[in-house]
Amino acid sequence: MTKDKTFTLITEAVREILPELADRDLSESDTLDALGANSMDRAEIVMTVLEEMDLDIPLVETHGPQNLGELAQHLSDTAAAKAR
């Protein structure tokens, strides 16, 4: 899955888990922290995206990326590596 497609999945999940952001534009530089996500919200968002990607990895492996763009890149790269 491309990084752009993964980023779209992330923004959809963010808007589902944080409904107050429904009308806000999200950019790759946004961080989940700054968007108001607590640790449970973050886990919910990432798990929602992982299910959409059918990417079965431990949540702890998604803790490195600092913003939405880095998270999209990381998940996209991880999915590509697993597919090889």
Binding site: E44, M47, E51, D54, L59
Partner: peptide, 12 residues
């Protein structure tokens, strides 16, 4: 069918 994607909020 895909238990590993159970939402974390289930734990609460």
């Amino acid at each position: 069918a895909k238990p590993r994607f159970l939402r974390p909020s289930y734990g609460l």
